[in-house]
Simulated scan of single mutants.
Amino acid sequence: MQFGIFTVGDVTTDPTNGTTPTEAERIKAMVTIALKAEEVGLDVFAMGEHHNPPFVPSSPTTMLGYIAAKTDKLILSTSTTLITTNDPVKIAEDYAMLQHLADGRVDLMMGRGNTGPVYPWFGQDIRNGIALAIENYALVHRLWREDVVDWEGNFRTPLQGFTSTPRPLDGVPPFVWHGSIRSPEIAEQAAYYGDGFFANNIFWPKEHFMRLINLYRQRYAHYGHGTPEQAIVGLGGQVFMRKNSQDAVREFRPYFDKAPVYGNGPSLEDFTEQTPLTVGSPQEVIDRTLTFRESFGDYQRQLFLMDHAGLPLKTVLEQLDLLGEEVVPVLRKEFAARRAEGVAEAPTHAARVASRDAALVAG
């Protein structure tokens, strides 16, 4: 099982002292956080894609390429890549290039994006969001697997005899997760292709995501990719830790209350009860995260959001120390001990190349 962190790259004022990082400071902080993730033994660093304030990560491949040059083991991912407003040809080429530069340590999460004004900025209509996600990914999927592609669709100019370059590393495209917080159509899409499904369960009660994940598992089996239990599932989560749970709550409360993503809504206590947000001691984070398996079954990737809401970099790095030293080692051991027989391993480039080669030999 893979453990890591994801960032939305928000530039938010620290409510405890009124300071706001510059865009340059926030970008450099995200790089520092990624390097810290590898240092403490995490598997994955993922970053979102946004084109509107207060967010800065408008070019994930640029940042991930820079991080790839400074790391050795970390899997670099997106959370998400906007399949609706990006040109699918550019997605195919950009992430194949990144895959080569990172020696295969790349995957990506396709998502529609939920910020309405972004669509017309890139010549699209949010009312076509689902149709764009389906058509654009169908093209990306072909561009990575066919050397020469003829294409005609509804949302971009046709292609005739087109070859996307560079070709995927070792002839194996980056692994794709389809991320969703609400759309069964996206769960269906992930199942159809035999890709991963990432349920970013950070805002809504678990029952909502249980329905989406169960749909994905059933349809994954329907399309002949394996049993429902062999489907590839990833989950999001949010944590804030201190050695003492009372200290964690006291320190995190002002950030929660003022955070753009959930400020002025439910209380911290209500939000913690209704969603996976865990604010407390490392042991409380361990106990809460282990319950995810009871709700969603065995899964392959767990990502935590830890650097938002104006939290200072020093605090985030302290959180990563706790996560890497006290939480993840226990979670690895416990999840492995409880893992059912026949569950798929977490995807890596090396494993997928080996699987492809074994299938060719068997064929």
Rank of each mutant, 00 (worst) to 15 (best):
V330C: 04
T163I: 05
A354R: 12
P168M: 02
G324A: 08
T32Q: 15
Q99K: 05
P184E: 09
K206T: 15
S58F: 07
A259Y: 11
T85L: 06
A350P: 00
Y299I: 00
G9R: 02
T19D: 11
R356K: 14
V343W: 03
A46T: 02
D147N: 13
S355E: 14
P117Q: 06
T85S: 06
E294F: 09
P53Q: 06
A199R: 01
Q189I: 08
A354F: 08
G111T: 05
D107Y: 11
F162Q: 03
L317N: 04
F55A: 09
G129N: 14
D195G: 09
H51M: 05
H222R: 11
K70S: 12
L323I: 13
V11Q: 08
V353S: 04
S59M: 14
R182I: 09
T71I: 03
F240E: 04
A337H: 11
M63D: 06
E294P: 04
E188L: 05
D125N: 15
A309K: 00
V11S: 12
A37F: 09
R142I: 04
T115S: 07
W121R: 12
V328H: 02
F292N: 09
R250D: 15
I91Y: 01
G153Y: 07
I186K: 01
D195N: 15
N244W: 03
T348P: 01
E341M: 04
V328Q: 02
T165F: 00
S79W: 06
T12S: 08
Q283A: 12
S295V: 11
T163E: 10
D170R: 12
P276C: 14
I5Y: 03
D125I: 09
V327K: 01
V118H: 06
A350S: 05
H208Y: 13
L323P: 04
H50P: 00
A37R: 11
G104Q: 03
V316L: 03
N17A: 10
V233H: 11
L98V: 06
T289I: 10
I186A: 05
V89Q: 09
A96D: 04
R253F: 00
T289L: 15
S58C: 10
V149K: 01
N128I: 10
L235P: 00
I67V: 07
A96H: 13
N200Y: 08
M30E: 14
G342V: 15
S355I: 00
A336H: 10
S164Q: 03
A69D: 10
Q124S: 04
R250A: 15
P266F: 03
P120D: 11
K90G: 00
G297P: 06
A131C: 06
N114E: 10
W151C: 00
R293K: 14
T81R: 02
P120C: 01
H208M: 15
F304P: 04
P54A: 09
P347Q: 07
